[in-house]
């Protein structure tokens, strides 16, 4: 996991609510045993037609789309299946952050564990972003703020623990393993209780 402290990029907008993880990566790509090689699978049924040709009407295929590292989407982004492949596919496609007014729980948890910054902003700001695709945003994790091109800045909530992991590029497993004594004590106390 690469450390992420600041991000400056143009946005790509998917102006739709309830984009589920089956859209982000269709289930037929889930037979893999690897994390890698999923960039092509990202939004595969949106980007490609039945014959495997790129769809011209899909914003993910537009010129310059691959330079956009910030994805702006409607409410309840990432709902549905818990597949972490959705996060891997988005990252491998080139996204480093996802902004929505409301993110699905499991998707958000998965994203933050992989260095994909998943944040919720207020509905009016997201509504504005949805209407203005391609604007350049400045995201700073140090003070948890997103700055718009006009200089207006908006704070976001990010769990301090997840924020530290993102900024330092570490995952939570090391922290968990350092708690082995506590875990063992809990196991002993539960064995005694039952």
């Amino acid at each position: 996991m690469k450390p992420l402290q600041k991000l400056k990029s143009r946005t790509l907008v998917l102006d739709q609510d309830n984009i589920d993880t089956d859209q982000i990566i269709p289930a037929r790509f889930l037979t893999t045993t690897q994390r890698e090689g999923l960039a092509k699978a990202a939004f595969a049924d949106w980007r490609f037609d039945a014959d495997g040709r790129l769809r011209a009407d899909c914003s993910l295929n537009a010129p310059g789309a691959s330079d956009c590292q910030i994805l702006v989407a409607g409410d309840n982004f990432g709902c549905g299946s818990s597949r972490e492949h959705a996060v891997w596919a988005l990252e491998q496609f080139g996204f480093k952050a996802v902004i929505s007014a409301r993110l699905a729980d499991i998707f958000r948890a998965n994203a933050l564990k992989n260095g994909l910054l998943a944040i919720e902003l207020g509905r009016p700001v997201v509504a504005w972003l949805r209407q203005h695709p391609g604007v350049e945003l400045d995201i700073c994790l140090e003070d948890c703020r997103v700055t718009l091109p006009d200089g207006a800045s908006h704070g976001f909530n990010l769990d301090p623990f997840a924020r530290t992991c993102l900024m330092e590029g570490v995952d939570a497993l090391g922290y968990l393993l350092a708690k082995t004594d506590l875990i063992a004590r809990h196991e002993v106390s539960q064995a005694g209780a039952s």
Partner: peptide
């Protein structure tokens, strides 16, 4: 509740999960 693959790894290794109380 459902978890992602990173958390599957966490539970395999530690039998625990880091969770905010919902």
């Amino acid at each position: 509740f459902g978890i992602g693959t990173s958390e599957v790894g966490h539970v395999l290794a530690s039998q625990c999960l880091l969770q905010r109380k919902p």
